[in-house]
Computed example of a mutant assay.
Amino acid sequence: MKKLLVACLFFALPVFAQSNSQWTLDSSTLTYHITHPLHQVAGTSHAARGKGICHDGQCDFLIAAPVKSFDSGDSNRDLHMIQVTRGAEFPIVTVRFHLPESATNAPTISCDLDIQFAGQTAHYRNITFQQTIQGAEHHIKGTIPAIVSDFKITPPSFFTVPIKNEMPIDVDLTWHSS
């Protein structure tokens, strides 16, 4: 009986030893771009944090960044951006997405994103990112084709002319798996 128990534990050990793989966001650069007929603005944040958990072949990721962490180089413009996007009421922008675990090792990743910003959730389908892998480090780059109206934000204006609706977000992330 003792040998049978030891044999069962020996064969079951690999099943119990399989743990969920986990991902941690090590560094981030998120840059939004807005365009007005008189000028273009880019606001950048390096404050995003993120986690990912893979289980049964499916990975779930969450990235979050404080709205106030985006810097356009003009503190008045940044304060106005926080006001327009209701950053005091909704201080965090989040991005959620799911991937098959096999996609975490592909050079190109295509996924659906759910972005919560300014109290609204926008869904973006089949967004493509490029991935470079070095050991446990995964470097992801791409652009999210966000638009202002998806978040029900009244476009800010300059000299009574509003910004364009397009607000692409450049993404540059470094993740590591464990």
Rank of each mutant, 00 (worst) to 15 (best):
K2R: 15
K2L: 14
L4I: 15
L5S: 11
L5Y: 09
V6D: 02
C8N: 10
L9W: 09
F11K: 14
P14W: 14
Q18E: 13
Q18D: 12
S19N: 12
Q22C: 00
W23D: 01
L25S: 04
S27M: 05
S28I: 05
L30V: 06
L30P: 12
L30R: 07
T31L: 01
T35W: 02
H36R: 08
H36A: 05
L38F: 10
A42D: 08
A42W: 03
S45M: 06
S45Q: 08
S45Y: 11
A47T: 03
C54D: 08
H55N: 14
Q58G: 11
D60E: 12
F61L: 01
L62C: 00
A64E: 14
A64K: 14
A65Y: 03
P66A: 04
P66C: 05
K68G: 09
K68V: 11
S69D: 05
F70E: 06
D71K: 15
S75V: 11
S75F: 14
R77N: 00
L79G: 13
H80P: 10
M81G: 07
T85G: 01
T85L: 04
R86P: 00
R86M: 00
R86T: 08
G87N: 03
G87T: 06
A88I: 08
E89G: 09
F90Y: 14
P91M: 06
P91S: 02
R96Q: 12
F97W: 09
H98C: 11
L99G: 13
T108N: 03
I115D: 02
Q116T: 13
H123G: 00
T128C: 00
F129R: 02
F129Y: 11
I133C: 04
I133G: 03
G135F: 02
A136M: 06
I140R: 09
I144Q: 00
P145I: 06
D150R: 00
F151V: 09
T154F: 02
P155G: 10
P156H: 04
S157V: 06
V161Y: 10
P162C: 09
I163T: 15
N165W: 12
N165D: 15
N165F: 07
E166N: 12
M167C: 12
I169E: 01
V171K: 05
V171S: 01
L173E: 06
T174G: 01
T174A: 11
